[in-house]
């Protein structure tokens, strides 16, 4: 009897253990993130008891996407912090490093990177937030594109693409 109960407990233990480790890390990291939010960023937690899924809204105050509002969904799976958070852009956007499906190309979210720029368990949520926010300024990179079409257009005629991006922001990302 005793062995049976024990075995059962052990089976579910693996998963619940990982969750509790993630949640312990998140309690500190979410607080640290909230204390260090850039002025262009807001977070919202749909379920205040669940720190592992939240929205991030970036409202750039400079650059091509200025004054747009871009909403991202951040999901932190059980294997955090061995694995990076998952980031999805929910707002329609024309951006070299964000695909039409909302996939985000950010080096620090990349696993198995050999250049030292990829995911490391030493990184924190606040680093991810800074990274996403910087995609609209410093980290915007037409040379390492996810939206290849847009980047090719940009190489051919950058002014035209800038114009298109501005129009797209006005049509899709203004509140």
């Amino acid at each position: 009897m005793i062995t049976l109960t024990r075995k059962k407990a052990n089976e579910s233990n693996g998963q619940s253990k990982r969750i509790s480790i993630r949640d312990k890390l998140l309690v500190k990291e979410v607080q640290e993130m909230e204390e260090n939010l850039p002025s262009t960023v807001k977070t919202s937690f749909p379920d205040s008891n669940n720190l592992s899924e939240f929205y991030l809204t970036v409202q750039p105050n400079e650059g091509l996407w200025k004054d747009g509002r871009f909403k991202f969904l951040i999901t932190i799976n059980e294997d955090y912090n061995m694995m990076p958070p998952k980031v999805k852009c929910l707002t329609k956007i024309l951006h070299p490093n964000i695909s039409a499906a909302g996939d985000v190309c950010l080096s620090l979210l990349r696993l198995n990177s050999i250049d030292g720029m990829g995911w490391m368990p030493t990184r924190r949520l606040k680093d991810v937030i800074f990274g996403i926010n910087s995609l609209f300024t410093d980290l915007c990179d037409f040379d390492d594109p996810l939206n290849i079409e847009l980047s090719e257009e940009y190489a051919a005629n950058s002014e035209k693409v800038k114009q298109r991006i501005r129009e797209h922001v006005l049509q899709n990302a203004m509140r």
């Binding site: 061995m82 694995m83 696993l111 198995n112 990177s113 030292g116 990829g118 995911w119 490391m120 368990p121 030493t122």
Partner: peptide, 17 residues
């Protein structure tokens, strides 16, 4: 414990790469 989990992902020191 922590390091042996990480090296399965990427065999680099997370502090100095």
């Amino acid at each position: 414990c922590c390091m042996s989990l990480w090296v399965k992902q990427n065999n680099r020191c997370p502090l100095c790469q």
